[in-house]
Design a protein around this nucleic acid. Structure first.
Lengths: 219, 219
DNA sequence: GTGCTCAATGAACGATCGTTAGGGAACCTA
DNA sequence: TAGGTTCCCTAACGATCGTTCATTGAGCAC
C-alpha cells in the first residue's frame, strides 16, 4: 500500500481552560468591533488560534458564547453596583454611588458593555427574555433610588421614569466614547456624571458637592 | 414543438417609485428589528412584496440601502434642530430648543434613529467615515451651545465635553424606549429632558422654567 | 505499557448569503 | 402601432455560513 504523503498538521498547543478564555476574549473583541452576525465562527477561531471545530468542545454553539458573555457582564455589574449602594444611607447618595460605579464599570469594560446592550436582539426568544428581565430589574433599582430621593425631599423631577431612563442612558454611553488615554480619568468622568445626574434631579449644591466628593466609601 | 407547461409567474404589480419606498420601509423596519447583517436581501424583498433581484433595479447593493437611510435621517435631523435653535437667542434657550427637537425627532422616527446610530460599523470605510463626520459635526453644535452657555454665565459644568456626550446620549436614547401609546406624549418627554439637561448644567430654576415653558418658538 | 479521557484536528455537510445574467411584460413616446 | 425604456421576473452563480463527523495525539491512572 502506498502511504499518503504526511501532511503537516497545524497543531495548536493544548491549553485546556485557557482556550476557553481565548475564545471569550476573541468573542468580546470581535462582537464589539463587527457585531455578532458579522463575526463568523471561523474568524472567532482564528483570533483564538484554534480551528473552528474546537470551539464546539467548549460551547454548544455560537449563541451560547454570546449568552455567556452577557450573563457574566450583567452579574458582575449588578454585584458591584449593589455593593456600592450599600455603603451609603441616604437615597441621593446611594444613587450617586450607583452612578459612579455604573460609569466606572462601563468605562473599564466597554466592549462587554456594548455587546451586552446592543446584541440583545441577536438572541433567540428564551435567552433574550432572560437577559431583558435582568436588565429591567437592574433599571428598577435605579428607579427606586430616584423615587426614594423624591420622597425624602432631596430630589425633584417632573417624571421619575423618564429621568431613570435618561440617567442610565447617559451613564451607559460612557462605554461608547471613553478613552483611557484621554484627558480625563475614569473617576473624573464618573464624578461629572454624578454632578449631571443629581443636578438634573434638582439636588441642591451642597448635596451635589457631598456626593461628588465622597469616593464610593473609600474616604 | 412541445410547449413548456405554463407556470404561473408571481408578478407583482408595477409600482414604480412606490417600490423604492416599500424597500426603504422594509429596510428601516427589518434593520432596526433584526440588524443589518441579520436581514437578508430575500427578507427585504419579501417585506416589500417583490423578488430579490428587483431591489437591484433601485439600489446598487445592500449597503447602499443602509447608507441612503442613514444619510436621509441625519440630514433631516440636522435641518430640524438647526431650525429650532435659530428661533432662540440665548445659548441656554438654544440648547433647550435643540434638545426638544432632537428628542421629538428621535421619538417620531425611532427605527431610523436606531439604525443610523447602531449600524455605523456595518458600513465600509468610505461611507462610515462620511457618516461619522456628519455625526461629529452635529455633536459639535451641541458642544458649542454648552460652552456658550457657560461663557454667558447661565450654565455651569466641570467638563463641557463629558456633559455634551451625556446630553446627546440621554436624548438619543428616547428612540429606544419611547412608546407613543404610553402615559406621556412626546412633547412632555421632551420637556422632561430639557429640565434634566439644564438642571445637570446648573441652570437656575427661572431659566429652566422659561426653557420648559417655551414650546419651540410657537409661543 | 495498556486503556481512557481530554482537546484538538481536517474535511465535509446542507443551507443561505449577496449578487448577476438574461428575458419578458408593461408602459411611454411619436 | 412601432420602438425604446422601465420594471420586475426566474434561475443560477460562487462564496460563506454554522455545524457535524470521524479521527488523532497527548497526558494520566493503574
Amino acid at each position: 500500500m502506498v502511504e499518503a504523503p504526511e501532511r503537516e498538521r497545524a497543531v495548536a498547543p493544548r491549553r485546556g481552560r485557557e482556550t476557553r478564555a481565548a475564545i471569550d476574549a476573541a468573542a468580546v473583541e470581535l462582537f464589539a468591533q463587527r457585531g455578532y452576525h458579522a463575526t463568523s465562527m471561523r474568524a472567532l477561531a482564528a483570533a483564538a488560534e484554534i480551528q473552528p471545530a474546537a470551539i464546539y468542545h467548549w460551547y454548544p454553539g455560537k449563541e451560547a458564547i454570546l449568552v455567556h458573555l452577557q450573563d457574566e457582564f450583567m452579574a458582575e455589574l449588578t454585584e458591584r453596583v449593589v455593593a456600592a449602594m450599600a455603603e451609603q444611607d441616604r437615597p441621593a447618595l446611594k444613587l450617586a454611588a450607583a452612578v459612579r460605579e455604573h460609569v466606572a464599570y462601563h468605562g473599564e469594560h466597554p466592549d462587554e458593555a456594548f455587546v451586552t446592550d446592543s446584541e440583545i436582539r441577536a438572541l433567540r426568544e428564551r435567552p433574550r427574555r432572560a437577559l431583558i428581565a435582568k436588565r429591567d430589574e437592574y433599571q428598577r433599582m435605579f428607579g427606586g433610588l430616584v423615587r426614594a430621593g423624591i420622597a425624602d425631599g432631596s430630589l425633584r423631577t417632573s417624571d421619575p421614569d423618564v429621568a431613570t431612563y435618561a440617567i442610565l442612558l447617559q451613564c451607559t454611553g460612557v462605554a461608547l466614547w471613553f478613552d483611557p488615554s484621554g484627558p480625563l480619568g475614569l473617576d473624573e468622568v464618573a464624578a461629572v456624571h454624578v454632578e449631571l445626574v443629581l443636578g438634573g434631579l434638582g439636588a441642591d449644591r451642597k448635596l451635589i458637592a457631598a456626593a461628588v466628593a465622597a469616593p464610593g466609601g473609600r474616604g
